[in-house]
């Protein structure tokens, strides 16, 4: 495989440039949409806030929140995808394909409809629980048997678990017809119409595990050389794997709690990162974070324009970009071992 950024200084510069692009995407995400806002107002809204100014209010209450959520969720999903890819050694592994998002959603929807849970804090814990349950099921089912965790088995197990949770969720929603429309928008994945309060409780978790993930780059690299070699090099592979699993569940679960099911970010972004920097996870993880944020911000901007004046759920946008990509990998990437 040809790596685009091969030397360390180039990787550093690349990461710096990516951060600049991220900043640019962030500013554009605040500036453009149904009401365009001049850049000077953005600066003012942040540093000299004027409650009487309509533009300032839009920025503070809607656009800024939205951009922050897109950034955080994009980065989390991308890191979760990269880690899953490392854990399963499977290019098709991503939280949504393996049913983790569907699990989190089912748990949240049943909490809302059956137990009338309202607090945002509990959504988060419930989402973790659902993500964990689904993840454990898929991982267990996928690794049954003598040949262990093969790509095809884990993808099939993921598809089945997804089908299971999705049909249960649909059942619950049919029983509880009221609010279907609002839950539906959330189900499809959206970063708009969320308040910053939804992000606050999950943010410390996300930041914490992200830092851990970045520092785990070296252990992940060792794990990539195979269980036996990793053990020989003195790694406690089980501990590494469990830690990775917990990080994935926290990242994917909190993303779902905040923004619903946004698919394919975890699939596309790690792939792009590997194309850029090679298979070194010390670089893949930070690159995935930045690129994931950029991708979701751009998808969100596009979602505002596709069916104006309505807005497309961002999960649909990412699926429309991501599914062809999945098919592309299935055709090329798995051709060798399929």
């Amino acid at each position: 495989m040809r790596i685009i950024l091969s030397s360390t200084p180039m990787k550093q510069i690349g990461l710096f440039i990516s951060c600049l692009i991220l900043l640019l995407a962030f500013i554009f995400s605040i500036a453009i949409g149904q009401t365009s806002i001049p850049f000077s107002s953005i600066y003012d809204a942040i540093f000299h806030f004027d409650a009487a100014d309509k533009e300032h209010v839009i920025i503070r209450t809607s656009r800024f929140t939205r951009a922050v959520i897109a950034t955080v969720v994009g980065a989390s999903l991308a890191i979760a995808g990269a880690l899953m890819r490392a854990l399963t050694r499977n290019p098709l592994a991503a939280p949504d394909i393996l049913g983790i998002n569907a699990g989190a959603i089912f748990f949240i929807v049943s909490a809302i409809t059956l137990f009338s849970v309202q607090s945002l804090m509990s959504y988060m814990w419930i989402a973790f629980l659902g993500a964990g349950a689904a993840g454990a099921m898929v991982f267990f089912l996928g690794s049954l048997g003598r040949d262990g965790l093969t790509p095809i088995k884990i993808v099939l197990a993921g598809a089945a678990i997804t089908a299971l949770f999705v049909s249960f969720t649909q059942g619950l929603l049919v029983i509880d017809e009221q609010g279907l429309q609002s839950v539906l928008f959330w189900l499809a994945g959206s970063v708009s119409g969320r308040s910053i309060e939804m992000l606050v409780p999950v943010l410390p978790f996300i930041l914490g595990v992200t830092v851990v993930a970045i520092f785990m780059g070296r252990s992940i690299n060792i794990l990539q050389s195979g269980d036996d070699i990793a053990k020989g090099l003195g790694q406690r592979t089980m501990l590494t794997k469990i830690t990775l699993g917990i990080i994935i569940i926290i990242l994917a679960g909190s993303s779902v709690a905040v923004a619903g099911s946004i698919g394919f970010i975890g699939l596309i972004v790690p792939h792009m990162a590997i194309q850029l920097v090679g298979t070194d996870y010390r670089w893949i993880i930070p690159y995935s974070a930045v690129l994931g944020a950029i991708l979701l911000l751009s998808a969100d901007i596009a979602a505002r324009y596709v069916i104006m004046p309505l807005e497309m759920p961002i999960g649909v946008m990412t699926a429309l970009i991501g599914a062809p990509f999945f098919i592309y990998i299935a055709r090329k990437g798995l051709a060798k071992n399929a």
Binding site: I97, P324, F326
Partner: peptide, 23 residues
């Protein structure tokens, strides 16, 4: 196997279109 995997991908795409239409 390729058919199954590609089927899963296409399935995701079709579901996205369905959700879009519903919204």
């Amino acid at each position: 196997i390729r058919m199954v995997l590609i089927g899963i991908g296409i399935s995701a795409l079709a579901k996205a279109v369905v959700t879009m239409l519903l919204v």
